[in-house]
């Protein structure tokens, strides 16, 4: 059982997290500036129709699976970590809080606004106005940038919370 949770679980948690944060950085480093350039020469629809929706599906589901697998690894220690009940849980507690805020940002702000921007799901038949899209675009952009910013300390505390790294950073 320990092997499943701590071995397989951690492996899948990290793999899932790589997919999630990899796509987050792809959006911020590649797609946003790429769309700006594509908008100038009229090629943006190729990205918004075929690339962005696929990337967003992997993005939101990997965010969920990363969070669930992280919660599974912490198991009954999850409340203690989130409530900082023991010094040993301080680093992973910070990492878990940052990951939780980022996960809520994905499902509460980025995904609902991206659906409006890209005319997905309920907006496919009923697109919102251009004014509403502009508001959604700015909200999704800032939420995505906040997540990019938070990913830096989140990764540090995830790495610094385990094994020899914890002893190195928090002796």
């Amino acid at each position: 059982m320990d092997f499943l949770i701590y071995g397989l679980g951690r492996w899948l948690h990290i793999g899932s997290g790589v997919l999630w944060i990899g796509l987050l950085w792809y959006f911020n480093l590649v797609q946003v500036p790429g769309l700006k350039a594509a908008g100038a020469d009229g090629t943006a629809p190729g990205i918004t129709k075929h690339i962005a929706p696929r990337a967003l599906e992997f993005f939101r589901w990997s965010a969920l699976s990363t969070w669930l697998l992280g919660a599974m690894i912490l198991g009954d220690k999850l409340p203690a970590a989130l409530l900082f009940q023991d010094k040993a849980y301080y680093p992973i507690g910070i990492g878990a809080w940052l990951g939780t805020i980022m996960f809520l940002n994905v499902w509460g702000l980025i995904w609902p606004n991206q659906k409006k921007i890209l005319n997905l799901y309920q907006y496919a038949a009923n697109p919102v106005s251009d004014a509403e899209k502009n508001v959604a675009r700015r909200t999704a952009f800032l939420a995505s940038r906040v997540n990019s910013m938070l990913s830096i300390p989140m990764l540090f505390f995830m790495v610094a919370s385990g094994g020899i790294f914890r002893r190195a950073f928090f002796p």
């Binding site: 010094k87 680093p91 910070i94």
Partner: peptide, 30 residues
């Protein structure tokens, strides 16, 4: 004042500063 999150470098610098602040808080309390 411009929002630092509008640029990639502003975002990275904010992330590094936040890491430093959180690390020092946890290190102090640890």
């Amino acid at each position: 004042m411009k929002n630092p999150l509008d640029s990639i470098w502003g975002t990275v610098i904010c992330g590094l500063l936040l890491t430093s602040v959180l690390y020092n808080i946890v290190h102090y309390l640890y």
